[in-house]
């Protein structure tokens, strides 16, 4: 242990690193990248022997040979790659000595309210995503369902984002969004019997579907972060249950 720096200095580094780690996990980064970034920031700030452990629900860090150690909980996980990019850029700037520790501290607090795309653009993105993927997956170029999938996907994504504000349980907002999608698809089929409910739903659900979570979980497992891999896999299974359950219930009630 060295007496070069006082406790306040280490406390500052801990704060910065933990905030950076939490932001990256909230943005949906891989665990090895989170740990790597935190270690880099600590080393570049001049701390010896930093130790880090990150899981999708919590980040731990200790400094100064284990004399100081803290943790930070991560409550809210979704994919927001802007956060990952910003933290990464700040860490790069800090490593290149373009900003000092104080500036890094100020900037990393501001990362949390980084601008995102406006809501209408996100809904449009979800709509075109569901329509185009439906055509790709079905492989028979079925243009009848094209507008239907766009409508259902956009509205479903919007419903998901709106319900997310009211409840902290992600399972519930996914379930409700899936039910909204199921109802809309059945309604479209009732209006025009040429539209196939299954095709529309396959396209529309691609906005919420847990495939990416599964793939990320497997990548974490392969990289040796067993704990976070398992946690993410659980999350993906829950999402699949919510989506399949919501749609299944609606289709059973409606008798399609």
């Amino acid at each position: 242990m060295s007496d070069k720096h006082d406790t306040k200095f280490y406390q500052e580094i801990l704060d910065i690193c933990l905030t950076a780690g939490r932001l990256m996990i909230e943005g949906g980064s891989e665990m090895y990248r989170v740990e790597d970034t935190m270690l880099r920031i600590a080393r570049n700030a001049g701390a010896e022997d930093p130790r880090v452990f990150a899981t999708p629900t919590c980040v731990f860090m200790s400094l100064n040979g284990g004399n100081l150690s803290q943790m930070k909980q991560v409550r809210d996980r979704n994919i927001n790659l802007e956060l990952v990019d910003r933290v990464n850029a700040l860490s790069r700037q800090f490593a290149a000595k373009q900003i000092d520790l104080q500036q890094l501290k100020e900037k990393i607090v501001q990362v949390a309210n980084a601008p995102s795309f406006p809501m209408w653009l996100q809904v449009v993105g979800a709509a075109i995503l569901s329509a185009t993927l439906m055509v790709l997956f079905m492989d028979n170029y079925d243009w009848v369902d094209f507008p239907g999938a766009a409508l259902v996907g956009g509205v479903g994504f919007w419903a998901y984002c709106e319900f997310k504000k009211y409840t902290k349980v992600r399972f519930l907002s996914e379930l409700i969004a899936a039910m909204v999608m199921g109802l809309l698809a059945v309604g479209l089929n009732w209006l025009d019997s040429q539209m196939i409910v299954d095709n529309i739903l396959i396209g529309a659900l691609m906005t919420l579907v847990p495939g990416l979570a599964l793939t990320n979980a497997l990548r974490d497992l392969f990289m040796g972060d067993l704990l976070s891999g398992i946690v993410r896999m659980c999350e993906a299974v829950l999402t699949a249950l919510a989506l399949g359950g919501g749609v299944g219930m609606i289709l059973k009630f409606m008798g399609v």
Partner: peptide, 29 residues
């Protein structure tokens, strides 16, 4: 940028979300 930023959107057409949802639906039915 970190590589994840390009990989996550690029994987969307490949990722097995559709069979995952279909599996749960088949189980529900």
């Amino acid at each position: 940028c970190p590589a994840t930023i390009f990989n996550i959107p690029a994987l969307v057409p490949l990722v097995p979300g559709m069979p995952a949802y279909q599996a749960v639906r088949a189980l529900v039915a």
